[in-house]
Each structure stands twice: as C-alpha cells, then as structure tokens.
Design a protein around this nucleic acid. Structure first.
Lengths: 209, 209
DNA sequence: CCAATTTTGAACTATTTGGTTATATATTGG
DNA sequence: CCAATATATAACCAAATAGTTCAAAATTGG
C-alpha cells in the first residue's frame, strides 16, 4: 500500500517547480544578478512571494539552483555538440558554434549565464562552482582532442591540454561579444576560423629554424 | 589681464575631480554596475552626496565618464604594450600579458571594467561604446600584424584580420577567467601559449591535402 | 460534510535607496 | 570687513525593496 506518488496533503501548487526555475534563469540571464529584485523573480517565475520564499528561499538560493541546473543542461548540450561528430574538426567547430548559437538565440537574453553573469556574482560558492565548471569544460575538449589523436586527425604531439584551454577561451570571448551585440553571423564565422586555428598542427621542433 | 587659471569664486572643492572618478572606477570595477549604490559611490569617491549630483550627475552619468576614461587609459597602455616591442611575437605576447596583468593586479578588483562589467550594463550608449572599443582593439592588433608582414615576421598571406580578432577574443577569455579567480601565473602561461598559437603560419593552400 | 494540511493573495513592516533641501562654511572681489 | 559665490554637512522625503504575517482557498482523509 504505497502512496508514494499520491498528491501531497494540502492545497496543490499553482506552479511547476522546475518550470519556475527555468523562468528564473531567464530573469537572471537578462538582468544579471544584482539587477534582479525579488519582484522581478515573482513576476518572472509566476510564483507568489510567500511561496517563493517557502519553496526556493532567498535570491541567492534561487540563483544557486538556477546556476547549477543551467550548467548541467548546457554542459550536456555542449558535450553532445563536442562528442557527436566523427571528425575532430566538426567537433571543435560544433562546440564553438553551439556557444555562439546559444548566446544569440532569439527569445533568450544574449550571452550566457555562466560566462557573462555568474562571474560578477560576489559569492564564494558561485566562484568555486565556476572554477570547476571551467576546468570541466576544458577537460571535455581535451578528451576529444585525445580521441582525435587516436583517430589520426591530429599528430601525436598535439598539445591537447593547451589547445583545449584555448578552445574554451575562444568560447568565452565569442560569448562576451555576443552579449554586447555582435551579430550571430559574424560570430559564427569567427567560430569557424577559431576552430581552424586551434587545429593547426604545432610547429614541429625537429626542423630547427 | 587674464584670470584664466585663477581659482574659482566660492568655496574650493575638497576633492579632485579626476581623482574621484578614478576611485569611482574601482567601485564599479569591483561591484559591477547594478551592484553599486549611490552610497557606495559617496563612500568610495570621497565626495558628499549633493556635490556628487551637482558635479557628476547620477549613477549612469558617472559610469559613462568612468568607462570612457578607463577605455582611454587602458587603450593607451594596451597600444603601448602592442607597439613598443620590435618583434611581433613580443608584441602579441606583451598585449596578452598586459591583459592578464591588469586583470590580476593587486589592489584592484579582478578582471576588467570593459570586458567583465560594462557588457552587463543595460544601456544603449554603453553597448555602442563597447562595440566600437572592441572594433578598435582588433584594428590595433591587425595593424601590428600588417607591420609584422612588412618586417618579414609572418608570411604575406597571414590572415591579419582574422588573427587580430582571435587575439582580442583570447584577451577576453583570459580576462573572464581572471575574474573568477584563476591565478595570474596560470593565465600568464596561457597568454604565452595563445601568442604562439595566433602566430602559427596559416596552412598553405599550395600543397593540397 | 468536516477536520487537517498546504498554498495562495494581499497587506504590512522595516530597511535601503535615490534624490533634494536647508543651513553652515570657505573662498574671492571690492 | 562685507557682499557674492560655491561647496560641504546633515537632515530629510518619497519610492523601492526584502522579508513576514494572516486570512482565504484548495486539497486529502475520514
């Protein structure tokens, strides 16, 4: 006799919890952390003030949940863009293209919550989270480079760690430019050229000057 | 009988105007735009509230002045780092090194006012200013590349415009990582490697495959 | 239908914030 | 030394903001 999935006891909620968090994401994404008031969240999430505090806590708590959910979702999509294609070139270009496309999507704010807004949040936990996210992103790209060596797409002496960081730095640079209004078309072109650059074979040391 | 540089009529100001603006720069730099209150500026600039409004205007006006002064100063220093060295490699590495060093300076906030905070300001004039600053920075680097071709440091088919944008995207990426706490040492290493990368000769098309 | 439970909506309180006003203070010009 | 001028200090006010309280509403369990 399990009532595990039975509806809970009292008045049912008028909102969907994860849906409300997604709406909160849009609010923070477009207004930044400090630019957001509780009333912004109330209006944007469609949740009454007392419910908001009861269910989610204060602004900081909401932001932390938003940030973590966003990172997970975006990380999965980025990994997919990176790991799906067969050719290394398509992987790297796809990764950067995804960064540009999600940063210039119609209907969302420009830029990226993790790249543009979270770094300005003056909070130790946020900073730690971002640090590990940055490291995780680079590690993912590095793994893809290693697979590229196995597949013969790039030479065995390819500096996988260095180039992986460079790919993610490019993504950051492109994303910040998206935020200030650089057109998607321009950024997509730059993403392609960045992919070309990071795939150049390293200068071989064998032939000295 | 010119009294051009005579002291003005009434009670003398207790603060230095440009000095106060520099202090305001630090305030915005560390707290972001929306995170700053008038009281923060009053405290940080050492200017009383009524004088602040009378002399500088409201928060937006102060920020615009701060941003423009910051851009001018920083642009000049970046140009110096870029144009002083003889070798192209020293120029590009110096430019990126300067970005990292100024973004990790002790005593200032981490990151950069133009790269990290201004892009989040929801204001058309700020956005326009940033766009032109971004274009100007890339143009500066591109010019240095062209000089490098003349000097024989890079081949004549070197894609100067593309690589110039990439240099500035790297600077943005490094600067954002500085903001989230990546150590200066790490970033300086990455800056060197980024300089190496963007100076790689392009794949020559002559030899197909 | 009624008690227990949970959420909702509206109002409320204390605090912060942006911006102004009034008065005192420091300086120049005569 | 006095009028004119400009700034400084402190107090002030209205609006915005964060967070709470409380009665009404919607549901389950009996």
């Amino acid at each position: 006799m399990f009532h595990n999935d039975a509806r809970p006891r009292g008045r049912p909620r008028s909102f969907d919890e994860t849906g409300a968090l997604e709406k909160a994401t849009q609010v923070f994404w477009s207004k930044g952390y400090d630019g957001v008031t509780i009333d912004d969240l109330v209006a944007g999430m469609g949740v009454g003030r007392p419910s908001l505090y009861a269910v989610f806590g204060d602004k900081r708590a909401i932001f932390l949940r938003v940030l973590k959910a966003y990172a997970e979702r975006k990380g999965a999509l980025a990994a997919e863009a990176l790991l799906s294609p067969q050719s290394l070139r398509d992987s790297i270009a796809g990764f950067l293209r995804y960064a540009v496309e999600s940063a210039t999507e119609k209907g969302s704010a420009r830029g990226c919550l993790m790249v543009c807004v979270a770094p300005l949040v003056d909070d130790a936990e946020v900073q730690r989270f971002l640090q590990s996210a940055v490291a995780g992103g680079a590690a993912l790209v590095e793994r893809r480079f290693r697979d590229g060596i196995s597949a013969g797409d790039i030479p065995p002496d390819f500096p996988v760690a260095t180039r992986a960081i460079q790919v993610t730095d490019f993504a950051r640079g492109l994303t910040m430019r998206a935020r200030i209004g650089t057109p998607r078309k321009t950024l997509l072109k730059d993403a392609e050229e960045a992919a070309d650059l990071v795939l150049l074979p390293p200068r071989s040391d064998s032939r000295s000057e």
